[in-house]
Design a binder for these strands. Sequence first.
DNA 1: GAGTGGTCTAGACCACTGC
DNA 2: CAGTGGTCTAGACCACTCG
Lengths: 255, 255
Amino acid sequence: MQKYVQIQRMQKSAVSPAPTFSPLYRQIKALLVQRLESGEWHPGDVIPSESELANQFMVSQGTVRKAIDELAAENLLIRRQGKGTFVATHDDPRAFFRFLRLVPLAGGIQQTKSIPLECWRAKAGPEAARMLGLKVSDPITIVRRVLHFADKPVVVDEIYLPGEIFGDVTLEMLRDYKGSLYSFFENRFGIRMVRAEERLRAVSADRNSAELLQVEEGSPLLSVERISFSYADKPVEWRRGLYSTRDHCYFNELG
Amino acid sequence: MQKYVQIQRMQKSAVSPAPTFSPLYRQIKALLVQRLESGEWHPGDVIPSESELANQFMVSQGTVRKAIDELAAENLLIRRQGKGTFVATHDDPRAFFRFLRLVPLAGGIQQTKSIPLECWRAKAGPEAARMLGLKVSDPITIVRRVLHFADKPVVVDEIYLPGEIFGDVTLEMLRDYKGSLYSFFENRFGIRMVRAEERLRAVSADRNSAELLQVEEGSPLLSVERISFSYADKPVEWRRGLYSTRDHCYFNELG
DNA sequence: GAGTGGTCTAGACCACTGC
DNA sequence: CAGTGGTCTAGACCACTCG
C-alpha cells in the first residue's frame, strides 16, 4: 500500500535539477498503467472508484480524475457514469471495428467471420525480428486466416507472433474460439492490444491470394501491414493483410 | 457583450423537460466555435485569455478551460503555455501531414511540391452534389494537380469544390501561391478545413494517371477519396486521389 | 438511497514566455 | 516583471445506475 511514495510533487524552488518535470497526474497515470500491465486489473474489470484511488495515492480526486481522463482517451479505460470505470476489453464487439477499418461500399453492417487456415512455428527472419523487437531466429508463431464479410472472402491475413508468448497457439484453439482474434489473445494469453500502426499500399494479387479472395490474379489489392502494441508500447503482433476492395473500402477519419 | 444570456445552467429540480442536458462547458465551447465560424477570430490569431473569457461568459476559468481543452483536442485551437491560445492554421507546415498520410518507404522527410494542371468550372453531377451537400447542376470548380515527393510524381488529385465559395479560383492563383492547398483556401477564401473522411481502395492505373505518375498502365494504385469539412461539419471539398505506392505508403495510427 | 462518474467553482501556486 | 497556460486542491452539487 506504499505504492505512491515515489511521487514527486511540484517544487517551489527547484533545488534538484528537475530534469524532466512530470505533473502529478501523469505519475498517477503511470501507476495505473502499471497495474494494468501487471495484470492486477483484468480487461472487463471495474477499477476502484476515483475517490478510493485518491485516498490510496494521497492526492485529490481531481488529480486522479485527470489521469483517468487520459487513459480513457487512449481507450485503455472506459468510464460509465453511475457504474464505475472499467478496463477496456476486446470482448466488446464494438471494439472490433476500432482495428478493422473496412466497411462495405454499399449497405449497412455485415456479419464477419474469421476462418483460420494454418498455424505453424518458425524462426524469425530479419524483418519479423525487427518488427516484433526480437532477435533473428527467435521462435515465432505464424497464423494464416481468411476474413469473410457476409460469407464472402474479403481479407487474407498472415500474422506473426512472438513464440515466447504465443508458442501454444494451435489451429484448433483458433477454430474453437468464439470471438475476435484480439479477444482470443486477451482471454487465452493475457495480452491486450492497445494501439497499432498500419502501412497501406496497393499491390497486385498473387495467385494464391487471388484464389482465396476469389478475384483475378493480378487484380489490385490493398496491402495492409500492421504492428500492434501492448501496454508498454511493446510490439506483440505483426501482420500483413491483403484486402479485396471490390465491395469494401478502408475508412479513415482525419481529425 | 450579452452573448452568454442563453446559457443554461444545471437544474436542481428540472421543472422544464430538459430534453438534452448540455453541460456549461459545452455551451461555452459552442459559443467559441461560433466565433471561429463567424470569422471573428482568424486562423493564427491569439484568442482572449482564459480568465478574460471566463469574465465575458460569467463562468469560472475551469469551465472555459474545459471547453478550450476539447477544442484543442479537435485541433481547432492550439495552446501554447506562456503565450496564449491560438486559432489553428494550415499555414503551419507541421499541419501539412495531418491530412496527407503518405510517407516514404525508406528514408526521412522529403520535399513535396504541388503542381496544378487544370482548373475549370462545371455543374455538379449527382455524386459530387451528394458529397458536397449541393443540388445537381449547382456550379462547382474542379482542380487537377500532381503532387511530387523529392521531385517525383506520387499523387494525382482531382478536387471538387463548391462554386459558390471557390468560383474565383484560377490556375494562375494556384500556381502563384506558396504553401499548401489548404493554406491557400484558408488565406484566399477564409475557409478552414477542420476534419476529413477518407475512403481507400486499390485500383488499376488508367492510361492518363499512369503517365502522370510514371508507372505502367494497369499497375496497382491507391485510390483515396476524401471529403473535407469546415467548422459546422459542412462539406467543402471532395477529392479523389491516386497514390503511387511504389516508394511510399499510407501511414495510419489506430488508437 | 447509496455509490459512481460528471460538472462547476474559487483559490493557490507552478511553469513558461517575452518585455 | 507581468501575463499566459498548467497543476492541484477542497468542496458542493448534478446525473446516472442499481438494489
